[in-house]
Nucleic acid binder design. Structure first.
Lengths: 203, 203, 203, 203
DNA sequence: GATGAATGAGTCTTCATTCAT
DNA sequence: AATGAATGAAGACTCATTCAT
């Protein structure tokens, strides 16, 4: 039946249009959630007609998948860039601080993309797979980069995973929850300390 | 809306019926997500008619709110119970291990309730509020209990929050992601070590 | 996902409602064709809401399938009934005349159901299958009935098929085309004569 | 609508392009039906842009009308050619056999064009009219040709119509339905016999 | 209290047709 | 003449909620 062909835009204008749709979708998904955003809104936000969306994406979920690709890239690219700049000797404490600052900034930008992605991962195999691979790749990359600068803890995979989770949680806390019985500077200090301690435990 | 009165069931049979609806909703929300579960399914799973659901709940979201109440209770009650049993002197390492084991068990039961809840928190003020308060109360309670058994780290609020986040992440990792490049026993060891180290840092 | 359950109505009122929907669909499909009839129109014509249609049918095509079932039943039932009444000795000429009269009447009622069905058979496997089986069963039944009254031509299957086709064409001609350069009484006479001749050719 | 002028192409290249579009449309309509074929597919199959289609045709239905013109021409031209070659004395049996062979061949080529056309005739006045006239003209022409070779049955119009219908049905049966309880050689024999008998009945 | 049939607004998606280039 | 990206109206189907019984 529907052999609507999805064109991978090569023209500059088309690329730009596709980008605008993804961006619009991403923004709305984050603000209101996937299921509370309809395609008409996305199209309107992107400044295009509803029909054209389906020239670039197979369906609504396809927009979402592209959106989380953008989100994860936005998260990892600056991290990798930062870590490539590092040269020994390293002040690990300082480095983690910088990483956290960077992540917090990303979180402010990407808003609630992460939770939305996690939630989608329940019911959607493609999202789950993407997310799982993303986590793995990121962790591996970080382990590599750490090795490159002489940080070689025992159980590096596990530690990196734990540390990334802690940082992730911290960012969320800072960006969203704003529990007023906590001091976020203090919390950050504690996270940094814990991560540094963990990574210092040489094998 | 209208003047549909939501009755708080006093009769035993009614209480039981309401409980069954919440349980059915909880189960299905976890399995398939809030938006992929419809009220007819919930009613069927609960063994009641679709109409009766609206005698006990104002709307679908109301079921969800009750469901997450059940989820959080299921999470915290066993924890509180366990911690009340503790008497000094404490083997903190062992205690954390036990806590993790307990959480993992809860996670296996409650499945993906947590992510679903987080995702709903975006678009729904009531959910967000509930969740925020829940986290705060739990953390405070834990701090209290810790004090009671003589564990008094510096920045207790922040540390408890961080530790709970780590344990939460660990559980998720164990229950869902199954990254095969990681050893979960090792990961657990590392989490326990980090938490113990953190909590041992007396003020 | 959608496990919308199609209920086979047992209640009198429900059966009546399902019947009304099929009838409305049948009428509109015949008048305007399958693709020019939308579900809202069917619902309106049946005097029900659009939603309720999907309680009784899985989709639009399901209505169509039921409609053609009704059409074919309407076609064959009176034929079978008539043939059962026959007792030897037979006036074959008279019988064929009666059959044609009956079919013409059915065609006036069912309008263009037949062509619509044939057209649908192209693109839809279920329709094709149903139609093919229907033709076979009808032909076999007719052969049987003929044997029962002592009409035993050579190649009965083929002849019955040919004869039914001729009668079908004749009916269509009479009901729809109204070519004014032809005399339909004459045409009928000729069809009857040809069929009688064919069937008289004993094996 | 508008003032979109449909140009009747005079240029060789344009004529060729229009022909390609009709051919593509015809092919796809037959394969998948009118409503399951979209203009983009037709354009692609024809190797032209979607836009150019509307330079040669007012709308989608216009392509269809041209396509059935092509279909009917493909059907009648070889028939007329064959009948012109005939000289008395005639072996009517043999002639009908040849005609059937020719029609079957046409049917294999044109696939399901006929049913599609019939179905469209319901909802579209232009199609109905075209088809009605086509049938009439063909029948008249056949009667003429028959007279030319000395075949002059009583009621020639009616008989030709009936005979053409029988042959049409036979072809469809052979090409599409493939009922395996029938022998198509036998069926063909019977059709030929019936037609010959009918035409031999001189007035 | 209980049922489940009924409602109809809302959603994703398609596609004939147009138009800027 | 030609392109193919863009439009937007229309349609099939879903589902939270209501209400007659």
């Amino acid at each position: 039946m529907g052999n609507a062909e999805i064109r991978e835009p090569k023209q500059k204008r088309s690329i730009e249009k596709k980008r605008r749709i993804v961006e619009a979708g991403f923004k709305l998904f984050c603000e209101k959630g996937y299921y509370n955003t309809n395609t008409a809104e996305i199209a309107k936000e992107a400044g295009v007609s509803t029909g054209i969306v389906y020239n670039y994406f197979t369906d609504k979920k396809d927009i979402f998948l592209d959106a989380i690709r953008q989100y994860t890239d936005g998260l990892t690219k600056p991290m990798y860039a930062m870590m490539k700049e590092i040269h020994t000797p390293i002040d690990l404490t300082n480095l983690i601080h910088q990483l956290i600052a960077m992540f917090v900034k990303s979180h402010y930008i990407t808003k609630s993309a992460h939770e939305e992605m996690m939630a989608m991962a329940h019911s959607d195999e493609a999202v789950r797979e993407y997310f799982c691979e993303f986590e793995m790749n990121t962790a591996k990359k970080v382990v590599e980069l750490m090795e490159g600068v002489g940080i070689t803890p025992s159980n590096p995979n596990e530690k990196v995973h734990i540390a990334m989770g802690m940082i992730e949680n911290l960012c969320h806390e800072i960006v969203y929850h704003q529990h007023d019985y906590m001091n976020y500077d203090t919390m950050t200090e504690e996270v940094v300390r814990a991560v540094v301690l963990m990574m210092s435990n040489e094998s």
